[in-house]
Computed example of a mutant assay.
Amino acid sequence: MSFLRRFVINLEHDHARRAHMQTQLEALGLDAEFVPAVNGRALTPADRALYDRQKALRVYGVDMMDTEIGCYLSHYRLYERMVREDIPVALIMEDDIAISPDLPGIIQALIAETSPEWLVVRLESLRGRVREAKTPKFKGKCVKQLDHAGLYRLHTHVLGFGAYLIRKEGAEKMLRYGQHIFMPIDQTMDRYWENGITPYIVRPLPVHQRQDFESRIGARPPCRHVGQALPVQIARRMQRLSDGVRKRLHALLNQA
């Protein structure tokens, strides 16, 4: 796996999370480069210029928080680096995860051969219906048996970005599709019917977010949708209708 690069996104002053990740990686015999996260509480004018507020209100439904923009840029700049340095595949991790001992074997099995031709494989999900799938829609189709797990292809969004494998081709697609920020990075990747990145997930999940770590994004205001202007509400409803139609069309085409 000499061509695989491993990255951990970590705020430079967050020494406790860095130590937590170093301990886990050492126990698994993995090395990784710690990459400074973009601090959403110290965005530059150039950072803010990448935010498309009008599209965010239409697609995401609310204004993004600065910390969401910072998280987005942390991942996006790694995609830029993958292309710039010609990195074939990378394991990207956030610093608040718990890693299963099965992860190294799973990764080795995933990159040992090119079939199926995935671009991104999510190793963690925040969506309960995906984590504990009880219906075909959320379970997906098992396309490959791995060590102690299976690789599943989905036709639904995954949610969550704690850890994932991404090929350079996937990074290139995200660079093209996500050059203007309009929703959190994991949800941007989840728009598979637009960005061309088919969702894949490993189940049982080898990575989980630790609940005892406070979110660096921060609490999202519970009433963010309240008081929006009528044109914004109408644009949002039209966008959701359009997304629903295109997702169904995407599913039909892929079944065919």
Rank of each mutant, 00 (worst) to 15 (best):
Gly244Pro: 08
Glu132Tyr: 15
Trp193His: 14
Ala37Val: 10
Ala90Gly: 02
Arg53Trp: 04
Asp96Pro: 11
Cys142Glu: 12
Pro36Gly: 03
Leu28Trp: 03
Pro45Arg: 05
Val35Asp: 05
Cys71Arg: 06
Val130Gly: 10
Gly162Trp: 01
Ala171Gln: 03
Gly29Met: 04
Ile106Asp: 11
Trp193Arg: 03
Val120Asp: 01
Ala112Asn: 08
Arg176Lys: 08
Gln228Cys: 02
Leu151Asp: 03
Arg5Lys: 15
Arg84Leu: 11
Ala32Leu: 07
His15Asn: 13
Ile107Asp: 06
Met21His: 10
Cys142Phe: 00
Pro204Ser: 04
Val121Ala: 04
Gln228Ala: 09
Arg248Asp: 06
Asn39Phe: 12
Ser100Ile: 04
Met174Tyr: 00
Met82Lys: 05
Phe213His: 11
Arg131Asp: 02
Val130Tyr: 04
Met65Thr: 11
Val245Lys: 01
Asp63Leu: 08
Arg236Trp: 14
His180Tyr: 13
Thr188Pro: 03
Leu25Thr: 02
Gln24Met: 11
Phe7Tyr: 15
Gly140Leu: 08
Val62Ala: 12
Arg210Trp: 05
Arg5Ile: 05
Ile181Ser: 02
Tyr164Ile: 00
Arg224Phe: 12
Lys168Thr: 09
Lys144Arg: 14
Phe138Tyr: 15
Leu165Lys: 02
Ala235Cys: 09
Ala56Arg: 01
Cys223Gly: 08
Arg5Cys: 10
Val89Pro: 00
Ala46Thr: 11
Ala256Trp: 10
Phe182Leu: 04
His208Pro: 01
Leu30Trp: 14
Met82Gln: 06
Pro101Leu: 09
Arg129Cys: 14
Ala229Arg: 12
Arg58Ser: 15
Tyr76Gly: 00
His225Met: 12
Pro116Trp: 00
Leu4Tyr: 01
Arg131Tyr: 01
Ile87Ala: 05
His13Ile: 06
Gly196Asn: 02
Asp96Leu: 02
Ile87Thr: 14
Gly40Glu: 03
Met1Pro: 11
Tyr72Trp: 09
Thr156Leu: 04
Gly227Tyr: 03
Glu214His: 11
Phe34Ile: 07
Ile106Lys: 11
Ala32Gly: 02
Cys71Val: 08
Val202Trp: 01
Glu214Asp: 13
Cys142Gln: 11
Gly162Tyr: 01
Leu91Lys: 07
Met1Asp: 07
Met183Lys: 10
Thr114Lys: 13
Thr198Asn: 07
Ile111Cys: 03
Ser74Cys: 08
Asp96Ala: 07
Tyr51Cys: 09
Glu117Gly: 06
Gly61Val: 05
Phe138Ile: 03
Ile201Val: 15
Arg77Asn: 15
Leu110Pro: 01
Ser125Pro: 06
Arg237Ser: 14
Gln239Met: 13
His155Trp: 13
Lys144Asp: 07
Glu214Ser: 14
Ile185His: 07
Gln255Ile: 00
Val232Leu: 09
Pro206Asn: 07
Tyr164Ser: 01
Ile99Pro: 04
Tyr152Ile: 01
Lys141Thr: 14
Val207Gly: 05
Cys142Leu: 13
Ala149Phe: 11
Leu30Val: 05
Ser242Leu: 12
Glu85Phe: 00
Ile181Trp: 02
Ile106Thr: 10
Ala46Asn: 06
Ile111Leu: 09
Arg176Val: 12
Ile166Phe: 06
Gly170Arg: 02
His225Pro: 00
Cys223Ile: 12
Leu103Ser: 06
Ala219Asp: 14
Glu194Tyr: 14
Ala32Ile: 12
